[in-house]
Computed example of a mutant assay.
Amino acid sequence: MRGTGSQRLVADGLLVPVHRVAQGDPPAPPVQLFLGLCVLAPVVGAAQSALDVVQDMFESDCKPFMPSYTHLSDSPGKRENLTAVEHAQLRTSLAGAA
């Protein structure tokens, strides 16, 4: 597969030994919800904190790495990216609350 640009491998008719297959029932829905929240809550918290840091940079006199703009908030591309991140974070928060 080297040099083809493909990173996929398809195996049809493959035999998996019984001792390699997971046994048992999936966790009950309350356990799944608890485990999902344990994973989702830190991710949403980290995204909110990162968004706060970026918003603080926009409100401060911090100069960006781009010499053509005096402040980070002057860059239309950065404002667009910040808006996209805010919408994604809001969608994630609403999905977690549902």
Score class of each variant (00 low, 15 high):
1 M>H: 14
1 M>Y: 07
2 R>Q: 13
2 R>P: 14
3 G>Q: 05
3 G>L: 02
4 T>E: 00
5 G>W: 04
5 G>Y: 12
6 S>K: 10
6 S>V: 11
7 Q>L: 10
7 Q>E: 04
8 R>M: 04
10 V>W: 00
10 V>C: 01
11 A>W: 02
11 A>Q: 11
12 D>Q: 14
13 G>H: 03
13 G>P: 10
15 L>E: 13
16 V>H: 05
17 P>V: 08
17 P>E: 07
17 P>G: 07
17 P>L: 11
18 V>Y: 09
19 H>S: 13
22 A>I: 06
22 A>S: 09
22 A>R: 15
22 A>T: 08
22 A>E: 08
24 G>S: 12
24 G>R: 08
24 G>V: 08
25 D>T: 09
25 D>K: 06
25 D>V: 10
25 D>S: 11
26 P>W: 03
26 P>Q: 03
27 P>N: 00
28 A>G: 06
28 A>M: 05
28 A>I: 02
28 A>C: 04
29 P>C: 04
29 P>D: 02
29 P>F: 03
30 P>C: 01
32 Q>I: 12
33 L>M: 10
33 L>D: 08
34 F>N: 10
34 F>I: 08
35 L>Y: 01
35 L>G: 06
36 G>Q: 09
36 G>W: 07
36 G>R: 12
37 L>K: 12
37 L>Y: 02
37 L>R: 12
39 V>C: 07
39 V>W: 01
39 V>Y: 01
40 L>M: 11
40 L>E: 05
41 A>C: 03
41 A>Y: 00
42 P>C: 01
43 V>N: 00
45 G>Q: 05
45 G>L: 02
46 A>S: 13
46 A>L: 07
47 A>D: 07
47 A>V: 14
47 A>W: 00
48 Q>P: 08
51 L>R: 10
52 D>R: 13
52 D>K: 09
52 D>P: 01
52 D>H: 01
53 V>R: 13
53 V>Y: 07
54 V>W: 00
55 Q>P: 04
55 Q>H: 03
56 D>H: 04
57 M>C: 13
57 M>N: 12
59 E>Y: 04
59 E>K: 12
60 S>P: 13
61 D>M: 06
61 D>N: 10
61 D>S: 10
62 C>M: 08
62 C>Y: 00
62 C>R: 03
62 C>D: 02
63 K>V: 12
63 K>C: 02
64 P>C: 06
64 P>L: 01
65 F>D: 15
65 F>V: 15
66 M>D: 11
66 M>S: 13
67 P>V: 04
67 P>Q: 02
67 P>Y: 00
68 S>K: 07
69 Y>I: 02
69 Y>G: 05
70 T>M: 02
70 T>R: 10
71 H>L: 05
71 H>P: 02
72 L>P: 10
73 S>W: 01
74 D>L: 04
74 D>K: 06
76 P>C: 04
76 P>K: 01
76 P>Q: 00
76 P>T: 05
77 G>W: 00
77 G>F: 03
78 K>H: 11
78 K>T: 10
78 K>P: 03
78 K>E: 05
79 R>E: 08
82 L>K: 05
82 L>P: 08
82 L>R: 05
83 T>D: 14
83 T>N: 13
84 A>R: 15
84 A>V: 09
84 A>K: 15
85 V>Q: 07
86 E>D: 09
86 E>K: 15
87 H>F: 08
88 A>Q: 14
88 A>R: 14
89 Q>E: 13
90 L>Q: 13
91 R>N: 01
93 S>D: 09
93 S>E: 11
98 A>I: 12
98 A>V: 06
